[in-house]
Design a protein around this nucleic acid. Structure first.
Lengths: 203, 203
DNA sequence: AAATAATTTGACCAACTGGTAAAACGAAGG
DNA sequence: CCTTCGTTTTACCAGTTGGTCAAATTATTT
């Protein structure tokens, strides 16, 4: 019997989440204020609390929506495809997400760095399961000698860390490489690194 | 004519910095409070402000001290050594720092993720110079065909991101790999990845 | 247009924030 | 013992924080 949301509700709901993403990704949960989010959203603070019951509720809604989008590219890994190409393609999708959704990446990074106090359950639940499954596929490829020996979990960590680095540490990357868009070079570098790490030499 | 610091001054100075590291690395600058730092240090808040003029001063002192330690291992790269071994050894030193000083890593990560508002100058100054120098060495090795073609800057980014990942995203790593110490496996994985990426096949 | 429901606002609050001032305390030398 | 200097505490402040509430405003229905 839930009433369908009004047009205004839908709009403001989205506006608030967008503002929350902008602010939370920059300052983390404790460093962000409702006033900042309200200003960013162009609404008054009490009006924001009319749509979300608390600051925490906004943050939780963002994290929940985020985790799904975040894990999605991993489902596109095809166990029956060419192993190296599948892994390279996954890395490229992940790198593109860092390019196109850096704030989402930073929101997640802020949360995890601070010990994942509000998302720890999801990490040791859904995330752990998904990673375990992909790691199994990778190590199946290793046993079949279709790629060189590699630790599945740590390979995934490597791909995540490298790709997310360009979003999370954007300030550092830009300071070191001023004036250039790093993503094209990063893609070339990462693909070369993965192919050399994984490809079985045609003996 | 600066009076040499008292024994008590030295001790409390260090105690406050240690407490600041603990708190700032967990909550970032804006998310941390002087009361938290005071509690962690076992001192009263005004007493803390007797040794540091402000919350900001504690943070700045930490960052300054940190950046030196952080860049130090990179100076040990020997341009005349074996290229692959030099890079692997550097990566191992960096990984050991993530294992032994995870809070320092997270403090730095928090600062950079939030746009490096208080350390941006150092990034585009000293950091950029050092990275440029090492990248030149790496690409010199490439030109001499002592390692396979690789982008120096992005190789360094890769090493940084992978090694720091185990400190910064410790909560995620532990959630995915519960009960195990990830660093031994990480070291093996990273070394294999680097050797395959860089070693010239003995044709 | 009147009635009703949804939305927005202004005024407000208690708790907390970084920081201050002055008094009290402590140790060391005279 | 007394003074002096370094240290610590108590009391306090103005500004900010997340959040509440009732009134005012706007949309929607009848």
């Amino acid at each position: 019997m839930t009433k369908s949301a009004t047009r205004i509700q839908k709009k403001n709901h989205a506006v608030i989440l967008a503002a929350g993403l902008q602010v939370f990704s920059q300052f983390g949960f404790r460093g962000s204020t409702l006033d900042q989010i309200a200003a960013e959203a162009g609404l008054s603070k009490p009006n924001i609390l009319y749509y979300f019951s608390s600051k925490d509720a906004i943050y939780q809604a963002l994290l929940k929506q985020l985790l799904e989008d975040w894990l999605e590219p991993i489902y596109n890994i095809d166990p029956d495809g060419n192993p190296v190409d599948e892994i390279v393609a996954y890395a490229n999708r992940k790198l593109a997400m860092s390019r196109d959704f850096p704030r989402e990446s930073r929101l997640f990074a802020n949360e995890v760095i601070q010990g994942a106090p509000r998302i720890g359950d999801a990490l040791s639940g859904e995330l752990r399961d998904v990673v375990g499954k992909i790691a199994s596929i990778i190590e199946g490829w290793v046993r079949a000698e279709r790629i060189l020996p590699v630790n599945g979990h740590h390979l995934i960590f490597s791909i995540w860390s490298i790709t997310q680095h360009y979003a999370d540490f954007e300030a550092q990357v830009r300071a070191v490489l001023p004036g250039t868009d790093p993503f094209d070079e990063a893609q070339i570098h990462l693909e070369a690194m993965l192919r050399r790490t994984l490809s079985v030499p045609n003996s």
